[in-house]
Design a protein around this nucleic acid. Structure first.
Lengths: 162, 162
DNA sequence: GCAGTATACTTAACATGTTAATTGAATTCA
DNA sequence: TGAATTCAATTAACATGTTAAGTATACTGC
């Protein structure tokens, strides 16, 4: 028998619930399925998923400080710090310091950054629409709602014990 | 005005759907909310989330080859390769080569690995139950179903054009 | 006005994610 | 059977995730 996957006979030892029911992994699979659609597009434009999140957040503002940007692009400060340095080196964003509070980094998208955004955004939107069509608008809406409820409930209850 | 977040007046330029409606990011937020509950436990035992996924998958088998393990723990080959080397250096797993096909790496959990698993699993299960209680069993089931449907639909349609 | 503390960001260190290239083994088929 | 191809795993290179430590600025209270 070639060792492909010899399922262990159920012993008395610890068993978790069926591995199928691993919530973080199911969320990861769904996310990966979606990202697999967007990654080729971003790659074509030399962007990572995270860099795109930053550009996308910046496209909505004239200027944002780094903390706000981290929240909006859902990135941790160290990651954002590196990403901003990288984006600046490619002249897609500008960094400066808030006059009123020198600790704060103020970030702006450049004209080149905006052009790149305007180039990618329609294609991204199109891919999103494809997903919506395949999965169905209603189910997609349900998914959005459940996801938001889920993290709101968990974040809420977590913040109590911190 | 201290630059906190100067929302840009709506111009004629490209606008994506509302930023809330970024599916990959919503999935990421949900996943992060869940992982935030498990990470302290894993950390206490010196494990990363991915290492735990591997141990968990291995706990169900006497021996598995690396490809199968990658599928079950949802890790890419390069990541799994590094993780297995690390876990072996800590004597939590054993690696060997399939006699019938020397390309295949056969992986087994060690006694020490099983002990660690048995130590972490109950606590992990407990945390999971807490989440289920907070969010509600029914909504959680709905979420599982939607997630599985989602990635099945997307993966299915993706595999056609590859 | 200054010591102590808090805040915002960066750097460091290590692990993983992602893609491409590489290595070695098995398979195919002329 | 042997060259070409396929396959399984690893390595390489660069980007990000995660936690801790570091740095500079701002605030607080005495």
């Amino acid at each position: 028998m070639s060792a492909k996957a010899q399922k262990k006979a159920a012993t008395g030892a610890t068993r978790l619930r069926d591995f199928r029911h691993s919530l973080p992994m199911e969320l990861l699979k769904a996310r990966e399925a979606a990202m697999a659609r967007f990654r080729p597009l971003l790659r074509k434009h030399g962007l990572t998923e995270q860099q795109w999140r930053v550009l996308r957040a910046l496209s909505e503002y004239d200027s944002v400080d780094a903390s706000e940007l981290a929240t909006r692009s859902f990135l941790l400060a160290p990651s954002l710090s590196r990403i901003l340095q990288h984006l600046e080196s490619e002249n897609l964003i500008r960094r400066s310091y808030d006059e009123a509070d020198q600790r704060r980094l103020v970030v702006q998208i450049t004209a080149a950054g905006k052009r790149l955004f305007d180039q990618v955004a329609p294609e991204s939107e199109s891919l999103y629409n494809t997903i919506e069509t395949e999965f169905g608008t209603e189910r997609l809406e349900s998914l959005y709602e459940l996801l938001a409820e889920f993290y709101q409930v968990l974040d809420q209850n977590s913040s109590n014990t911190e």
